[in-house]
């Protein structure tokens, strides 16, 4: 049996030990404890309508079929709900048929497309469709030429700082800060430059 005094001492020691341990254990815990994340940060990409409209402006009217096939109809890759009633049906005299005019806002694969997310963060699907689209648009002479002309360049324009800036302006028309460190360019073709800009994620985030 311990004497009463000793017992008190021991309890005090225990208590000190307990205190020290609490401090030791709980300080990292306190940091870890403050770590419940209540949010998800998706990259706020533009939806299929935004992407198609931006690219159409850059590559011209000739791009519309490519964009319809590879962007607008890929509802679940890019997001952007359809509008079920955005179809217009009217009587036309062509062979006494009624013609149903569909707008690009129609539901491509059924009414459930009206419930998709307003945008979908970059994913394999999205990236794949976009890359394909960019390759097609740059490969096609009319659309490529349209973009080059819009930028105020020609295929043989020098790869100068100011010309590169013109190209960047296609995708970033309102950004104040454009990169100046473009000197080290090892002479890639304008096609390559255009397609790489087209494939980059940044312009897709409005």
């Amino acid at each position: 049996m311990l004497s009463l005094k000793k017992r008190i001492l021991k309890i005090q020691k225990d208590r000190n030990f307990f205190l020290v341990m609490t401090l030791l254990l709980c300080s990292p815990l306190a940091v870890y404890g403050n770590s419940k994340k209540i949010y998800r940060a998706d990259r706020r990409m533009g939806d299929r309508f935004y992407i198609a409209s931006r690219l159409q402006r850059i590559f011209g009217a000739e791009s519309s079929k490519t964009l319809e096939e590879n962007i607008l109809s890929k509802v679940r890759a890019f997001g952007g709900a359809c509008s079920p009633y955005n179809v217009i049906s009217e009587f036309q005299k062509e062979g006494k048929k009624r013609i149903n005019h569909h707008t690009k806002y129609r539901c491509y694969s059924g009414l459930a497309d009206s419930k998709v997310e307003p945008f979908i963060d970059a994913g394999i699907l999205r990236t794949g469709h976009l890359h394909k689209t960019c390759d097609l648009l740059v490969a096609k002479q009319q659309t490529y030429q349209f973009a080059i002309n819009l930028a105020g360049l020609g295929s043989n324009s020098a790869k100068s700082d100011s010309n590169l800036k013109k190209m960047l302006r296609l995708f970033y028309p309102h950004s104040k800060k454009l990169p100046l460190a473009l000197k080290k360019v090892k002479n890639p073709s304008w096609k390559l430059i255009l397609s790489s800009l087209c494939k980059s994620d940044y312009w897709q985030i409005p």
Binding site: L168, Y172, S175, L182, K184, V185, K186, P188, S196, L197
Partner: peptide, 10 residues
């Protein structure tokens, strides 16, 4: 060489 600055643009 070129792409790094372009992609780091933003």
């Amino acid at each position: 060489g070129f792409w790094v600055p372009v992609l780091l643009f933003l």
